[in-house]
Amino acid sequence: MKMLTRIGFWLLVAAVGLFSIFPFYYAIMSSFRSGSDLFTIAYLPERLDFSNYVAVFERQPFGTNIFNSIVVAGAVVALSLALGITAAYAFGRIRFRGRSLLLMTILAVSMFPQVAVLSGMFELIRAFGLYNTLPGLILANLMLTLPFTVWVLTTFMRELPKEIEEAAFVDGATPWIVVRRVFLPLMMPAAVTTGLLAFIVSWNEFLFALTFTLTNEQRTVPPAIALMSGSTAYELPWGTIMAASVVVTLPIIAMVLVFQRKIVAGLTAGAVKG
């Protein structure tokens, strides 16, 4: 009986694992194949053919696209955290009229589907003269990342003991010093987590990036991949698309693995009250 439950448990684990990893595995597989091979089903690679990977960078400015994505995602993370932490201090620590209303409004913003705000956002971006520029994309993506950054950081900020802040005030700290020198180090785990989520959201964002850019040189990775064309209008270059997807997914996976250790380490360090 014990044996059976154990087998059942591992079968279930295998099923979950297979379900989440198989699509990515198949993408890697396909990226090594080309031509009509792509349309036969195979579960094991026959040979390692990197021609698709070369083609990704040769046929379009894919390097520029990756660079754009890094700039946009990096700026979005930096701005979200900077605004998120300062906003969290206000929401978590300062009593003012309309605080919960404002907090609700911020949450409400994230409820609208992207499509609903697309046309309005387009007008906004055009009015600012940011159409087909990276700052335009950064501004648009902030709308997606700020609500949850503010919420998570506010919740975290509220749980920090009030006495620490008061001790800092008695020591002569201004609110800004309290945020920067006392709260920021304590909130590192939360900041890393939300920063990572913001990075992923911004890195994978498609609709805004597609709508607010015009030229290939200003595109980020997701629309660049989607708009890849083959040698004829009727051919979808699956091999190249898969190669491109693998190239842009690997850094994300690496980053999550690296920071995951940090998140866990940070959370346990913060859990012990000081």
């Binding site: 003991p161 006495e163 620490i164 008061e166 001790a167 800092a168 005030f169 008695v170 020591d171 002569g172 700290a173 006392v182 180090p185 304590l186 913060g270 009250k273 000081g274």
Partner: peptide, 20 residues
């Protein structure tokens, strides 16, 4: 006056040390 300008120092029940 702000707490720091009053020439006082305070010891809290929960110690309130900066953990980091």
């Amino acid at each position: 006056l702000a707490p720091a300008k009053r020439g006082i120092a305070m010891v809290f029940q929960s110690y309130a040390l900066y953990p980091h």
